[in-house]
Write a protein that binds this DNA or RNA. Structure first.
Lengths: 342, 342
DNA sequence: AAGAAGTGGGAATACGTTTGCGCACGGTCG
DNA sequence: CGACCGTGCGCAAACGTATTCCCACTTCTT
């Protein structure tokens, strides 16, 4: 194992390298960056010295000169992190590949903290900002006329001129419903989260539209409630009472689906034989722990983050900034809870 | 709403401020930092100009001069994030309060990527590094003789001279067991994750030691398996067969506990009346979704992160760096699954 | 009124890097 | 043998800020 160079005290500067290679600072710089013309022997001597001294160019000095910092800010509010974390990691992935480093800021959904972090990021001369948060109603933008581009990921700005990228909830609903129809179901119920959530409304809309195409209607009322297992358990009973012949339930989240699965089992309905079940989120610990494992819709959160990051990179590179809300297609993950009953 | 200053094109520099206030750059700097002596009128004029131009000192220039960057690196491997995220946010919280910004790096548990990110962080002249990851066996250190202090949080370095801070798994086991004993249980089984995990072994050790103090032994064998609901379901049957008179089960994770709860219910054992149940992690969606809601042990992950950060700050400030492994006490979160049977 | 003491502010330098410009040297050709 | 050209490298400016030193001017003292 090659032990790192012995410059523990003070990092080597290009001046040290130049001195060690007996050239001027300028020549050393050119050698290291392959810019000017010089004898191979000279270049090699500089490179060897740099290697020996463990030289790394000081990015502060580079940034100061170039007027760039190669950093962006990642502002998150969803402290719980279940949704924003995959987005963050996706973004970090795409940015890291572009030699851009990411400043992490957790606002805890506090506008004061958000403002504070925004100031700090701008002071640090980040070249762009990604705002991510929990999926809910559109939120006010982080600021107007900022000197850097901003992209909203997994959350949506109320400002039309901002660029937001969110999951295709409606498309996810369509996907789930088509899958249920394809496995021979026709009486599909829907249990989901609060009607106040745009995501819940969109998913429901995807369901009803797809059913309508097939000349069908949802089984029973669409049940808006909470994003919890407990609500899933309660609502399943309501649904069984309102539409006893239901043969499939599309749930607005995996948690709700688990609650539904439990009630169904206790009421003697077999999953998937009697009733097929589809969740939403592909939250693996939930979906895989379910009995039977849950067919569910994956929002491709990582992809959302990656796309947001790539878009931000484009904006930083000076490409014209589009605006509005864009969506990333969801994916269906089939598991045992919708296996075709023979 | 005060709209931000109109310097969209290029951030104002201290030169602009000095010109606007009709003083020299040096004087402007002194005015802004309250250093030299000057007439109040002059100082006010500079401050007003700075305010008007929306001046923020360029941290690159400051860092270059001061030899400091006021940044640290946060290296995480646990892509799944359930454990490392709260740690990260806790750390970010403590560091942010100290005007330190955090570079986020996700290694995805890939040593190559880790090495790569380490290089990049050092190149960026971070002043310290926090390494966090999924709880498992101790891992090799991130590097030796690094020019900056490193703290391991929620993961443990094999290098004795490194500083690691992890949850007190043993203490958590003690806490859970005492709680069960206090609620009148005496035949306590234990179902947990793979024996390869130090965390699993420690929790088990906490249990057996506490039982021994009371002159008791675990009910049945300690069942090592997986961190999954499915294992919880299987193991509960094994336990019921081996020790039919079991009146409490301490589980190594909330997921396992949920599986156990399900099997217990299906076998006609009431929770908590017949069998009390304690989980581990306080993973709220799991613990609250359980029927009944789960008493569990909270590892105080945020606190681990905060402590790691504070420790890093101390090290950066030059205080002597202790070494070895330190633990953060766990907390018991009582819920319905251990409610005292009257 | 002249010297001393003190105050306000400017010039210069440093941090580490990049880059345009120019100089010296050697070789080639007329 | 002199003019010209290309190669190889150094010099210096620039990025934005903080700080030290020093100078000029005001004010007080005798």
């Amino acid at each position: 194992m090659a032990s790192p160079p012995e410059q523990v005290a003070r990092p080597a500067t290009i001046r040290d390298v130049a001195a060690a290679a007996a050239v001027s600072i300028g020549t050393a710089s050119k050698a290291l960056n392959g810019r000017g013309r010089m004898r191979d022997e000279t270049r090699d001597r500089v490179l060897a010295a740099a290697e020996r001294l463990g030289f790394r160019p000081n990015p502060l000095a580079q940034g100061l000169l170039a007027g760039r910092t190669y950093t962006v800010g990642l502002v998150t509010g969803d402290s719980y992190g279940r949704f924003s974390i995959p987005v963050m990691l996706g973004a970090e992935d795409a940015l890291g590949a572009g030699q851009i480093s990411v400043f992490l800021c957790d606002t805890r959904d506090d506008p004061i903290r958000e403002r504070h972090y925004l100031e700090r990021l701008l002071a640090r001369r980040v070249e762009g900002i990604i705002v991510t948060g929990r999926r809910t109603e559109p939120r006010p933008g982080i600021g107007h006329d900022l000197p850097v581009p901003v992209v909203y990921a997994m959350t949506q700005s109320t400002d039309e001129s901002d660029y937001s990228i969110i999951p295709d909830d409606r498309g996810g609903g369509v996907l789930a419903t088509r899958h249920l129809l394809a496995t021979g179901r026709a009486r599909v119920g829907h249990i989901t989260g609060p009607e106040g959530f745009q995501a819940a409304r969109e998913r429901a809309a995807g369901l009803t539209a797809t059913l309508a195409e097939a000349g069908l209607e949802p089984a029973g009322e669409i049940l808006f409630g909470e994003w919890s297992e407990e609500w899933g358990r309660q609502a399943a009973d309501i649904l069984l009472h309102a539409a006893p012949d239901v043969d499939a339930v599309f749930c607005g989240s995996d948690q709700i689906a688990r609650g539904v699965a439990e009630t169904l089992r206790e009421r003697g309905r077999r999953v998937p034989d009697d009733v097929a079940l589809v969740g939403f989120d592909n939250w693996e610990p939930m979906a895989l722990g379910c009995r039977p494992p849950l067919t569910t819709v994956d929002m491709n959160l990582g992809e959302i983050g990656r796309l947001a990051a790539r878009h931000l990179l484009d904006a930083i590179a000076g490409e014209p900034v589009p605006s509005g809300v864009h969506t990333v297609p969801a994916t269906l993950v089939p598991r045992a809870s919708t296996r075709r009953s023979i």
